[in-house]
């Protein structure tokens, strides 16, 4: 059951994956079995995804993360919030993150 993601969700990287930064990209490599369908293709985060991923500390909620990014990149906060929730939904579906 994939938890529903809101701006109040607090997330952290799953212990069942290894995240590696290679040439500026974050690549998620499954460690245990049953992490989505990634056995043949690894999951790569784009620059925005990388910035979100690096802030998933199990403390800040998604609204805080999106607000911080909107300030840093001088971008509309609604847009960043939408992108953040969308990415986190996908990561949760793939069991790459845990949701508190």
């Amino acid at each position: 059951m994939v938890p529903s993601i809101t701006l109040n969700s607090i997330c952290a990287p799953s212990q069942d994956v290894v995240a590696r930064e290679i040439e500026g990209e974050v690549i998620i490599i499954p460690l245990t079995a049953g992490i989505g369908d990634m056995e043949d293709e690894l999951f790569t985060l784009n620059e925005t995804g990388k910035q979100i991923w690096q802030r998933l500390d199990g403390i800040a909620d998604l609204k805080q993360i999106a607000t911080e990014l909107a300030t840093e990149y001088d971008a509309p906060v609604e847009e960043i919030e939408r992108d953040t929730v969308g990415l986190i939904q996908e990561l949760a579906q793939r069991k790459i993150i845990t949701v508190q």
Partner: peptide, 10 residues
């Protein structure tokens, strides 16, 4: 094997 996998190596 486990060491390599935990480093994120296939």
């Amino acid at each position: 094997y486990l060491f390599a996998r935990r480093l994120g190596l296939r």
